[in-house]
């Protein structure tokens, strides 16, 4: 059979198939989707024949394209629904964090060790902390937490200032989460850098405020959103380290394969980190700067940590085992 014969014999069938695929691609209602699998298999056979008989690039290319279009229709993924999001919140995310508990403690250590070392160093010698913050950093700490009279609350009195800070926190902090994660692909170096850097800088800020400003105005401000923000950062670090470790110790897989597997495991972590950091921005934007009794603000901060501990320890345990 020559190319021409083959085309003549099947032209009509291919045209019908193409019409059907086009209808389905455009989402037209009249399309008879139930006929697609059979027609698709026929097309697959036609393509195999054409390739085996070397019918040439023009015909093979056309059939190849038709097969790909049908394949994409048949294997289309269902888009994310509410059910999936709820399942992510209640089961997948906490389960993923528990599964990576080693990375959880590693990332905590990498952040908290520099934090406390730098913060406590201020008590003995404040010069280190001053050097880290720099003149601008110290000036802004003074402006925000200088004393009871010139607190951060006053900076938020203008209309819309809370919303402005909310937007700023989203862009800045979620962006840093993403960078912490992406930096993991360079063998974890980028992730470790961001964790250590944040530990040092936040430690310096806390140490400086403890010595030179009004500590109460600082700690009451940060307590409310601390659990969301710091855990979000740590979880983003876990996701990054998962990527990095897959390249450093891929086990028995080739590195490219190990990377794909690690990325799949890291995905719920980075989504979760994004969620936590977004919540942190809400709290930091609209709650933390309110002028309220210190006891209440500390209480809300502690409640946040307790809730997170309960969430990560308990949520989705039964469903997680079943899965």
């Amino acid at each position: 059979m020559t190319v021409g014969d083959f085309e003549d014999r099947n032209r009509e069938r291919w045209a019908e198939y193409e019409r059907l695929v086009e209808d389905l691609e455009k989402g037209r209602k009249n399309a008879d989707a139930s006929g697609l699998p059979r027609r698709f298999r026929e097309l697959c056979i036609d393509l195999s024949l054409a390739e085996f008989r070397m019918y040439g690039e023009r015909l093979e290319g056309r059939l190849n394209e038709l097969v790909i279009r049908g394949y994409e229709l048949l294997y289309r993924h269902r888009r994310t629904g509410w059910e999936k999001i709820a399942r992510f919140l209640v089961v997948e995310f906490p389960t993923a964090v528990r599964r990576e508990w080693r990375l959880f403690w590693l990332c905590n250590l990498v952040f908290w060790l520099p934090f406390f070392v730098v913060m406590l160093s201020a008590r003995h010698d404040i010069q280190w902390v001053q050097a880290i913050l720099g003149a601008d950093g110290m000036a802004s700490m003074d402006a925000m937490y200088g004393g009871r009279e010139q607190q951060v609350e006053h900076l938020r009195e203008q209309y819309g200032a809370n919303f402005m800070m909310f937007g700023h926190y989203i862009r800045n902090n979620v962006g840093i989460d993403f960078q912490t994660f992406a930096g993991g692909i360079v063998a974890g170096v980028g992730t470790l850098f961001f964790l250590v850097f944040n530990g040092i800088y936040m430690g310096a800020a806390a140490g400086y405020v403890n010595e030179a400003c009004d500590p109460e105005s600082f700690w009451t401000f940060v307590s409310g959103h601390s659990s969301y923000e710091l855990l979000g950062m740590v979880v983003a670090g876990m996701a990054g380290m998962r990527l990095g470790l897959s390249l450093l110790c891929p086990g028995r897989l080739p590195r490219t394969r190990a990377l794909v597997e690690a990325a799949r495991k890291a995905l719920p972590l980075i989504f979760g980190a994004m969620m936590l950091t977004t919540l942190a921005a809400v709290v930091e934007g609209f709650w933390s700067a309110r002028l309220l009794p210190s006891e209440l603000k500390y209480g809300v901060g502690i409640a946040g940590w307790v809730l997170h501990a309960a969430y990560f320890l308990l949520a989705g345990r039964r469903a997680g085992h079943a899965a």
Partner: peptide
């Protein structure tokens, strides 16, 4: 109408969206 603080917040959110 919204005030410059609100627009600054919106710009930050849009910036985040466009960047990532």
């Amino acid at each position: 109408a919204l005030g410059d603080k609100v627009t600054a917040g919106l710009l930050a959110l849009i910036g985040f969206f466009m960047e990532w």
